[in-house]
């Protein structure tokens, strides 16, 4: 797989994503500067976490207008897998590539700690190798992860299986105590109607090696890799 990791000014998890994809999973990675306007020869695009443009406006709002974003939109519209992690999720929301919006955490504070999320849908490239109901342990690190959607939109995305992850207790129960930021219905990740664009607040790249305490995040990347490889034409001979 050849994945592109987009670097906005203020991204700070770009190197971590590159490390996991290239160093841990042995994939080919292109570091894509936000000022570029084309995404050539990529199988997947990742928008990493951080504070793009400082997030002095709403998180992700300025990055959503970066020169690279039209190419990301075109890539997504062509069915290419796009993964937004944390700030990358916020950018995808602001760009209108995912439904809903992010509010400040209900606790009004940045939260950095491991959480559990439950896989709600396996129809995305990032979750197809997982089980529905499977519980993953991943760290969060954000101040604006309080997912919101107006009631009608919320009903739509729930009905159309666009909720991909929910915060849950270690045993998988989706309960209010497991919600770290006040997200509606414990939503931790949502996808586009086609399923190929996914945004999630927890950081799978920080949980992809045993030494860091969890390898659950790697399952998301491995699912993506398997999806990309399965789409490749089988070489003949």
């Amino acid at each position: 797989m050849r994945a592109g990791v987009v670097i906005f000014p203020g991204s700070n998890c770009d190197r971590d994503c590159v490390h996991v994809l290239r160093g841990v999973l042995g994939q080919d990675v292109a570091e894509v500067w936000h000022g570029e306007t084309a995404l050539e020869g990529l199988d997947a695009v990742i928008l990493p976490g951080g504070f793009a443009y400082g997030d002095y406006l709403r998180a992700g709002a300025v990055a959503a207008t970066s020169p690279i974003m039209p190419a990301v939109r075109a890539f997504a519209q062509a069915g290419g897998p796009v993964l937004g992690i944390c700030n990358g999720f916020q950018v995808l929301l602001e760009a209108g590539l995912l439904p809903g919006a992010m509010l400040r955490n209900h606790v009004q504070k940045f939260q950095c700690r491991p959480v559990h999320i439950r896989v709600e849908s396996t129809r995305t490239p990032f979750t197809r190798a997982l089980r529905e109901g499977q519980v993953l342990r991943l760290p969060i690190a954000h101040g604006e992860g309080n997912y919101y959607a107006p009631p009608a939109l919320l009903a739509t995305i729930q009905d159309s299986e666009q909720v991909v992850f929910r915060y849950c207790a270690p045993d998988g129960r989706v309960v209010p105590e497991a919600n770290p930021n006040g997200s509606l219905n414990n939503i931790a990740g949502v996808c586009s109607p086609g399923g190929n664009v996914l945004g999630l607040m927890p950081h799978p790249e920080r949980a992809s090696e045993a030494i860091l305490g969890s390898e659950d995040g790697r399952l998301i990347f491995e699912s993506l890799i398997a999806f990309v490889e399965s789409r490749r034409p089988v070489p003949v001979g």
């Binding site: 700070n12 998890c13 190197r15 971590d16 490390h19 996991v20 976490g49 504070k109 940045f110 939260q111 950095c112 700690r113 760290p139 690190a141 950081h203 790249e205 920080r206 992809s208 090696e209 860091l212």
Partner: peptide, 11 residues
């Protein structure tokens, strides 16, 4: 206190 600090970035 430390849950307000990002302590896991840079993996």
């Amino acid at each position: 206190v430390y849950e307000q600090y990002d302590h896991s970035v840079q993996v």
